[in-house]
């Protein structure tokens, strides 16, 4: 790691001011991606502003919406009876992020602000059509994820909570990268009031919705409806563990299997 200054503000206001006063500052949430990145010397922030001292965690279920504070750990989402009752697919997803020790540290806000192409949470946020509340506004999931490690967040803007509308039913199926166990392909399928949503993570440069599958599932919410849909490998990632063709194939298989668990 390079040298940096470290701040642990007590409020969002203080955090914001620190950010404005420090040239290349970065916010530190659970740190489970940022700290490894710093250890590899792949980033050189002048300051880390640790959001861990700001009360931003907690889970509320009300009015058909699950609202989760940005600082809530993956472990707490995975083990929450409220989340399990309202959106079991979400607690299932959270229970498959990283490993147990990582889930004790990693946070919802940190994960989606980072928007790692292989992260799990973006699939749930987009798949459920969640709303992201920040220090300055609310952003819909469809507008939030803009590209690889890119989001709609402005400089200094901090996610405070995420609201997930409770779907009629939903499921997440993940095919982990054999080495890293990140999602090589993860498909989140949800039947919501606003229609069927299918969000895919891991496969491309950023999470995306698979509209052909959404259309097919709208007609018939069955595994067979998606089993025959061939996803184009054109935009898929390709690496040692999976060619674009293989990833495209897995999107179909994971979608089919996700639907099968709830159809």
């Amino acid at each position: 790691m390079y040298q940096f200054q470290y701040f642990r503000p007590k409020s969002l206001d203080e955090a914001r001011k620190l950010y404005e006063n420090n040239g290349d500052a970065k916010f530190l949430a659970g740190g489970q991606t940022l700290i490894p990145t710093l250890k590899q010397r792949l980033a050189q922030p002048t300051a880390l502003i640790d959001l861990g001292g700001i009360a931003m965690s907690g889970i509320k279920v009300a009015g058909g919406v699950v609202t989760i504070g940005a600082g809530t750990k993956h472990f707490d989402v995975a083990s929450s009876a409220d989340v399990k009752g309202a959106i079991p697919a979400l607690s299932h997803l959270a229970s498959h992020i990283g490993d147990p020790a990582v889930r004790h540290m990693g946070t919802l806000g940190g994960s989606i602000a980072n928007n790692d192409p292989a992260a799990d949470y973006p699939a749930a946020v987009l798949g459920l059509g969640a709303t992201i509340k920040t220090t300055s506004r609310t952003i819909s999931a469809d507008d939030f994820f803009t590209g690889m490690f890119e989001t709609a967040l402005e400089e200094g803007e901090i996610i405070t909570e995420v609201s997930f509308p409770v779907p009629e039913k939903a499921a997440y199926m993940k095919f982990p990268n054999p080495a890293s166990r990140y999602a090589m392909v993860g498909v989140f399928v949800a039947k919501t009031k606003g229609g069927v949503r299918v969000a895919v993570t891991g496969a491309a440069s950023s999470v995306f919705r698979e509209s052909a599958m959404e259309a097919a599932l709208t007609k018939s919410f069955t595994p067979d409806a998606v089993a025959g849909i061939k996803v184009s490998p054109g935009n898929m990632n390709s690496d040692l563990h999976g060619t674009a063709e293989y990833r495209a194939h897995l999107v179909t298989v994971m979608a089919k299997r996700a639907v099968a668990t709830i159809a």
């Binding site: 740190g31 700290i35 590899q40 020790a101």
Partner: peptide, 22 residues
Amino acid sequence: TSQCGACVVHVNGKAVKSCTML
């Protein structure tokens, strides 16, 4: 890369990777 777990300790009663925490 925060994967091997040889560094696991408990912080406030929960297992964490002490190589991935300042």
